[in-house]
Simulated scan of single mutants.
Amino acid sequence: MKSSKFIYTQALEVNDALQALAAGNGAAKPMSGSQSLGPMLNLRLARPAQVVDVGRIPGLRTVRGAGDVVEIGAAVTHAEIEDGVHEPLADHPMRKVAGEIAYRAIRTRGTVGGSLAHADPAADWVVTLAALDARVRLASPRGEREVQADAFMLGAYTTVLESDELIVALIVPRSSQTLQWGYHKVCRKPGEFAEASAAAYFDVTRGCARIVLGAVDGPPILLHELSAAVANASARREAGAVTREHLRQAIAKALPARDAIDRKLFTACVERAITQSGVLANLYHGE
């Protein structure tokens, strides 16, 4: 199919894009790599009167370190993160996540901000940024605001973005020697949408312990109690303090409507994410 007619506007500055979005009165949509909005246009699931291309705005294409965080421009592509093009992300765990998104052709054009704005529950960045306790910087004619990544998505394909707002940057913690990280997803085949996913992030320096479920048909789910239990067991070096049964119970509590097979998939994702992080080397010792 082909998209319905729309006005195409290419913005070369953030202010130009914001003015175009505001003038659209809710009928204008920003587009960067077109890997999310593009298919929806062609299927006519989205019919904006105007598309504002923000992919060439220099301010959205940069990555810079700022203290203990990294600010990632919304139009930075998955492939750039995967390849370590930007020095502040050269040794960041986001590189591994980026390299597993869809296929290389999509990663070359798709952008981190566009993926987050699309808010597909199965998307990799949705769960990753929630686990990293990242912040999303939004700009509008009224100014800028920041939203926690785990509060950005309200539901499937629904976010806190207002019609005249644009994601301009993502703020994530820098990689450090105290950062321990794991991410695992289950797909029918490489490049396919995830049926279940989980990310685990622990950083003693920041006092952060987060285990998050993705691909849950809605916003990612933070497993508060399990995160704290794993962090405490790791700090006390208590082998066997967290067992597979603890994981199963946490998943059952978070996903009460899911069947046994789905819960097993999510349990496996959480188990492997924790194992990858190395935070509990003997997670099931003695079980």
Results as ranks from 00 to 15, higher is better:
R107I: 03
R107M: 09
T108D: 11
R109G: 03
G110D: 04
V112I: 15
V112S: 00
G113N: 03
G113A: 10
S115Q: 12
A117C: 02
A117D: 00
H118N: 12
A122C: 11
D124R: 07
W125I: 11
V127N: 05
T128D: 02
T128Y: 03
T128K: 00
A130H: 10
A130V: 13
A131Y: 06
A131T: 11
L132S: 10
D133R: 13
A134L: 06
A134W: 06
A139P: 01
S140E: 09
S140L: 10
G143F: 15
E144N: 14
R145T: 09
R145N: 08
V147E: 11
V147D: 05
F152S: 01
F152Y: 10
M153K: 10
M153T: 12
M153S: 08
A156W: 10
Y157R: 13
T159L: 00
V160F: 09
E165F: 01
E165R: 04
V168Q: 06
A169F: 02
L170Y: 07
L170G: 01
P173T: 12
R174Q: 15
R174M: 14
S175H: 15
S175N: 14
S175I: 06
Q177F: 12
T178G: 07
T178W: 13
Q180L: 14
G182P: 06
Y183K: 05
H184C: 13
C187D: 08
P190A: 09
P190I: 09
E192H: 13
E195A: 15
A196F: 02
A198I: 11
A198N: 07
A199N: 06
A199P: 06
A200D: 05
Y201M: 13
Y201F: 15
F202Q: 04
F202E: 00
F202Y: 11
D203A: 06
G207N: 10
A209S: 14
A209H: 01
A209G: 03
V212Y: 00
L213V: 02
G214S: 06
A215C: 12
D217M: 12
P219L: 03
P219H: 09
P220L: 00
I221Y: 03
